[in-house]
Design a binder for these strands. Structure first.
Length: 581
RNA sequence: GGUCCGGUAGUUCAGUUUGGUUAGAAUACAUGCCUGUCACGCAUGGGGUCGCGAGUUCGAGCCUCGUCCGGACCGCCA
């Protein structure tokens, strides 16, 4: 046998056994006559012991050994003189009688330890070394377990995992497509899927009424800590369902995951309409771990001479509990925070609710004590609280106050790690007006069905049409989203028309789906979860990179493999591609 | 496309405010000592194009401009 055990499994029960272990040298400790080597593999660390009196030849042999050498060691399991309570194998060590170098190693560019000394850039370049470290190993193990639990649950409910193609037709309605040139069809291109959307709908038409797939998706957009150009979705679709069926099914999946992975019994997932989410949190993905809900103040603050409020579409505030003692400097700091270009507010009004029942505000010039009292009452603010108010154009102000709310949540320690608040955000608008291109875009995607009662005003009042679309939000992160789909050819054609697509365009991009609608399409709907994000959020991490074995950097590069890269003239010629000078 | 932050030893950083002798620390690495370590200890040593280019200056790691690279964010992400 090449090896008899792994480095994580031996304990006092194995004492006196003759074993052979393989692994990487984590650490060598030389103490004169005694030498200890920590031998590491995926499963743990086992200490190898060498005694120069008992076995001088082997001590001589291991003298040149260094970190990360791969070795095979044979010896007897013995009880340690001094035990290490910190590791499972800490009661024993191997008194080595034979050792073999399987491969030496250069000194690695950073330390392979739980707390590495290497920076992000370097560790990405040597990802295969970084992956040897426990934190990343545990992340990948976590990801593996999560995928197994998802597959188990979906399988139990009769969902079939079916693979869909990676080389498909380009339909850049949403994100930009990654394109792949076709050699066999010169001048033509495939696209990599942004999601298997049309294919899963076609599977519904084919009669596979419960489908899922853990699948790579591709979007050629700029990266973030929680966005990679290639990422993984848990993609699902069901036939003969309405919204409630989908919500129930996948609420079940989420509860199963929390129970199995985190041992948390999740309470019933609360639902909030998109309109309320915007109204109370200024966001369609609210972090509901804490309150601090928005209070609209138009009616109590627009009756005096203060132009900023009077001209604003929305005057809205939040209450920061117990923050009345904020210093001038802290308040200025908050004003600076909302004035940063990323947020872009022009200012921030505060009202301090003093302990003695009086009020102090940054707009005392315009409002008397009764006015401020009315505001405090409306907000439910008490003595000792601080009211923060912003005003301006509705959507913009909501977004800005949302940022401030999250910031205050951070400062007050209200966004606790290990605490999870899961929400369904429902009743999304079907369409979203874009000023720049002067047209409507589908808020979810163009296959989303309008609510039946709103269908009639699709053309007459498109902005007011709501959809049977829903997002799953955990702690302010959009983890999943889906909808009931259009399954009627005429309605789909109307939808494309509202989106401003010409008949020619519709035909070129979506003829396959439209044709299929004519051959017996069942009502259907589904959703997709961001698998990488789910891994990160369940581990209280911000970055999905730590859960992807080989991620891209900020500039969408793989610095380890040096991708993307230029290709040879021969390759270009074969593809009939000429590069612009 | 934009905003902000960073780039100094193998690595992580300090030094830049106020330009001035031989650019420091920790860690890693090497050598020696050490028989119970497990963050081993002690001693010694090697290791630098201060990202790159130009400018200002008697003099630039430090100031100015440009450029490249990395990170966070805005736009973007149906």
């Amino acid at each position: 046998m090449y090896r008899t055990h792994t480095c994580g499994e031996l304990n006092a029960a194995n004492i006196n056994e003759e074993v052979t272990l393989c692994g990487w040298i984590q650490k060598i400790r030389k103490l004169g006559g005694m030498t200890f080597i920590d031998l590491r593999d995926r499963y743990g660390i086992t200490q190898l012991a060498f005694n120069s009196e008992i076995n001088p030849d082997i001590c001589k042999q291991i003298e040149p050994f260094g970190r990360e050498w791969v070795i095979r060691a044979t010896g007897k399991v013995t009880e340690r003189y001094s035990k290490n309570k910190n590791i499972p194998t800490g009661d024993i060590e191997i008194l080595v009688t034979n050792i073999e170098v399987l491969n030496p190693s250069q000194v690695p560019p950073f330390t392979i330890e739980d707390e590495s000394d290497g920076g992000d850039e370097l560790r990405l370049k040597y990802r295969y070394l970084d992956l040897r470290r426990n934190p990343l190993k545990n992340n990948l193990l976590f990801r593996h377990k999560l995928s197994i639990e998802i597959r188990n649950y979906m399988n139990e409910l009769g969902f079939m995992e079916i693979e869909t193609p990676m080389l498909i037709n380009s339909t850049p309605e949403g994100a930009r497509d990654f394109v792949v040139p076709s050699r066999v069809n010169p001048g033509e291109f495939y696209a990599l899927p942004q999601s298997p959307q049309t294919f899963k709908q076609l599977l519904m038409m084919a009669g596979y009424d419960r489908y899922f797939q853990i699948v790579k998706c591709f979007r050629d957009e700029d990266l973030r800590a929680d966005r990679q150009p290639e990422f993984t979705q848990v993609d699902c679709e069901m036939s003969f369902v309405e919204q409630e069926d989908v919500l129930q099914t996948f609420e079940g999946l989420i509860r199963h995951i929390f129970k199995k992975i985190k041992n948390i019994d999740l309470p019933k997932v609360e639902r909030i309409t998109w309109a309320d989410a915007m109204r109370y949190y200024g966001s369609d993905k609210p972090d509901a771990r804490f309150g601090m809900k928005f209070v609209e103040l138009n009616d109590v603050l627009k009756h005096r001479d203060f132009k900023v409020f009077n001209e604003a579409e929305l005057v809205v505030g939040i209450v920061a509990k117990g923050c009345a003692n904020y210093s001038r400097k802290q308040l200025d700091g908050l004003t600076d925070f909302v004035r940063r270009p990323q947020i872009g507010a022009s200012g921030l009004v505060h009202i301090t609710c003093n302990q003695d029942g009086t009020f102090k505000s940054s707009v005392d010039k315009f409002y008397n004590a009764d006015d401020l009292k009315a505001v405090a009452e409306k907000c439910g603010a008490e003595a000792g609280d601080l009211i923060l108010i912003m005003a301006g154009q509705k959507l913009k102000t909501q977004k800005q106050l949302c940022e401030l709310r999250l910031e205050m949540g951070n400062r007050l320690g209200l966004r606790k790690a290990g605490e999870y608040k899961v929400l369904w955000v429902i009743d999304f608008p079907l369409l979203e007006w874009d000023e720049e291109t002067q047209r409507y875009y589908a808020m979810h995607h163009p296959f989303t069905a309008p609510k039946p009662e709103h269908e009639a005003m699709l053309e007459s009042n498109p902005g007011e049409v709501n959809a049977n679309a829903y997002d799953l939000v955990i702690n302010g992160n959009e983890i999943g989203g889906g909808s009931i789909r259009i399954h009627d050819r005429k309605l789909q054609q109307r939808m494309f028309k509202v989106l401003g697509l010409s008949e020619e365009e519709t035909e070129r991009k979506f003829s396959c789906l439209l044709n299929a609608f004519q051959y017996g399409c069942p009502p259907h709907g589904g959703l997709a979860f961001g698998f990488d994000r789910l891994c990160a959020i369940l581990s209280d991490c911000d970055s999905i990179r730590d859960f992807i074995a080989f991620p891209k950097n900020n500039a969408a590069r793989d610095t380890m493999c040096n991708a993307p890269s230029i290709i040879s003239q021969e390759q270009l010629d074969e593809l009939r591609i000429e590069l612009k000078k």
